[in-house]
């Protein structure tokens, strides 16, 4: 903004913005703080803020008692596996739609978007029964495939909006200089496409990591990712706030950090390019 603001105004806005920022993220801050308390301090009344004996015991407990590593690995395999599979299918499609659009391209894109509108709960029964009859309930394979199908429209759309910004003339120039198709792809297009592919990868890993309809309904123990692991705290026994906090912190930390890096892509990816 070009207009001048006085230092006083700026200080006032700073206080307001920081206040609201801390208020909004407070549940996260409080969870992280609680994860370092003992169970007794976690429920102390009045609440204890910073002056307690910080402990890592909850993290140790969660890891040793609950096989946390397995849930974590399931989350990693499902979110990254489904995204890579989705990229492999979507890159050629987005590529050809961006560089050789036909009169049907828009219709195909809109139709892909429309599949995303189908509520998951509408197909819960057949998907559940189908997987059961194939013996695929509670397997990573089933979740990787379903998560890939869930996110495929977003992946195609995001890639399409990125690829469309690569100027077509650059290809012609390369061709003039005698580059064949293989060289064209390796030396000209790939370097320009990598940032878009990386952003798409990031956002879709986040979406798949946090997905909590299919993961809750199609897994029990073997393929259960972190969403399902945390859900198991919904019927607790005894004191558990600190352990819940430790488990939650571990479940959200990796994705929170990835998320901070993908703010811009988030807007673009989730609005299907309508807001940039």
């Amino acid at each position: 903004m070009a207009r001048q603001t006085t230092t006083g105004q700026r200080a006032l806005v700073t206080v307001a913005a920081w206040g609201i920022g801390i208020l909004i993220s407070f549940p996260i801050i409080w969870t992280v703080l609680t994860s370092f308390k003992t169970e007794a301090t976690a429920i102390a009344s009045p609440p204890v803020w910073f002056n307690f004996d910080w402990t890592l015991q909850n993290y140790i407990d969660v890891n040793t008692r609950s096989d946390y590593a397995r849930y974590f690995m399931n989350s990693v395999v499902i979110s990254i596996g489904s995204t890579l599979l989705g990229l492999a299918v979507a890159i050629p499609a987005a590529w050809s739609m961006a560089f050789q659009p036909t009169k049907n391209t828009k219709n195909v894109l809109m139709w892909m978007l429309s599949t995303k509108m189908m509520p998951a709960v509408g197909v819960l029964v057949p998907v559940y029964l189908g997987l059961r009859s194939m013996g695929l309930l509670d397997t990573r394979t089933a979740l990787v495939i379903i998560m890939m199908l869930m996110n495929l429209p977003i992946i195609v759309w995001m890639l399409f909006t990125y690829f469309r910004e690569i100027p077509g003339e650059i290809l012609e120039a390369a061709r003039m200089d005698g580059a064949n198709l293989r060289n064209e792809i390796i030396h000209v297009l790939t370097p320009m496409a990598v940032p878009g592919i990386a952003s798409t990868l990031l956002l879709n890993v986040i979406l798949a990591w946090n997905e909590a309809f299919w993961t809750l309904n199609l897994t029990t123990t073997n393929a259960a990712p972190l969403t399902a692991f945390i859900a198991s705290f919904s019927s607790p026994q005894g004191l558990f706030y600190a352990k819940l906090s430790a488990a939650s912190t571990m479940a959200i930390a990796p994705i929170l950090i990835l998320g901070w890096f993908s703010q811009k892509q988030l807007v673009r990816g989730l609005t299907f390019g309508a807001v940039k």
Partner: peptide, 10 residues
């Protein structure tokens, strides 16, 4: 922006 990245069960 952080709350958006917290999984629903958490």
């Amino acid at each position: 922006i952080s709350p958006f990245f917290v999984m629903p069960t958490v």
